[in-house]
Design a protein around this nucleic acid. Structure first.
Lengths: 204, 204
DNA sequence: ACAGCAAGCAAGTAGGTACTTGCATACTCG
DNA sequence: CGAGTATGCAAGTACCTACTTGCTTGCTGT
């Protein structure tokens, strides 16, 4: 039963590279250093194997929750986005293929959607807490703002490898998204340290 | 030579539905109501056909430019985003498949990236014009804000069909993104008509 | 009327795909 | 030691894929 894990991980890699149709059982077997029959004996069929890969993959995906009581919103959000960006970048290839196969393989839908939905709810709740504590303006369009932030993160992860030059520098991305987001929801960006950040506002 | 166009459009539809590997020549021929050999006689190979589909598709894609001299930024941007959203939604399936196949079919990259890059530059230039005319704050992080707006549009197009409930209502989307964007760049949202829009700020 | 060309049709080639079967090998546990 | 179990290997099945060939049909322009 050692091979099971080897196959799972190999399948993950091959699937990430070539998508479902491109991930042939032969390729997966070779990548796992395992005989092709073992693959069928262990998982039954290619479809079942790929399903196992997806559930296995989003079991491993977890982002630390945002604090219930906001104390330093800017730092908290930046850290949250930083972790989310890292984890999402690691699973980008899987995500993009899963997204494109949602129509043909419905089991991919959960994988491609669940995360976004969860993140949206978490962020939305957090902003409502900010509002409740007077840390964000009341007339903000919270839902749209959060949707834009989530899209920014997803867009960064999905698009940066293809068109890097339209995104903020990778090591500043999280912080910049947060600052822009704070302006959207009318939160004062780091009350105490109102640094004059004018010089940083242009890039290329 | 009637069949050439029929094949091109049929190939577009089949490719949009099944991706490159799933778009078999047989399927395309059937969809076009044409014999399979005609397809090879006209385009030479499946790869060449799909390349023709992509170039054909982004020739047709055009969004009206933003005005050189901004007079009603909110209306102008909203209209611009509205058109972009519509056009992108129409080509979403093509886009998502092209994105997932960038690694294997480099000719798909141009198709998947060019639009985003162009839109970013156009929007960025527009915002700089807003700033020059005193219609947007000078300390805004223009590049990041524009990246977030573009991501919001792409995210809406790509994600809404899968997780509709996290996005603003489809008929208000453009306007809401623009309002949030204006807060990001410190633009006064509709100078003359400072309507009390507090009641509209929450959704679900 | 006749040449030329676009298209259909039937059949075939060479290779890849998921998946199966039968048998041999090794390793583990009682 | 001996039974069970996991794995490897060789071969095969049935089907799909891109692409080709040779021949026929029908329409078009001169």
């Amino acid at each position: 039963m050692i091979s099971r894990d080897r196959i799972l991980e190999a399948a993950g890699r091959v699937y990430a590279k070539h998508g479902f149709r491109g991930a042939t059982t032969r390729l997966i077997a070779i990548e796992a250093g395992v005989n092709e029959v073992t693959l069928f004996r262990t998982f039954g069929s290619k479809g079942a194997l790929l399903e196992a890969v997806l559930t296995h993959s989003d079991e491993q995906f977890s982002v630390p929750a945002l604090p219930t009581l906001p104390v330093d919103p800017q730092a908290e959000l930046t850290a949250y986005l930083g972790v989310a960006l890292d984890k999402l970048r690691a699973m980008r290839p899987l995500l993009v293929h899963a997204t494109s196969e949602v129509d043909e393989r419905p089991e991919a839908a959960r994988f491609a959607c669940e995360g976004r939905h969860h993140a949206h709810e978490e962020l939305r709740a957090y902003v409502l807490r900010l509002q409740a504590n007077g840390l964000a303006s009341d007339d903000a369009d919270v839902n749209t703002a959060v949707a834009m932030l989530v899209s920014a993160v997803m867009g960064d992860v999905m698009g940066r490898p293809m068109v890097a030059d339209t995104y903020p520098p990778i090591d500043e991305a999280a912080a910049r998204y947060v600052r822009c987001f704070f302006r959207m929801i009318g939160a004062n960006t780091g009350a105490a340290a109102t640094t004059h950040r004018k010089s940083r506002s242009r890039i290329a």
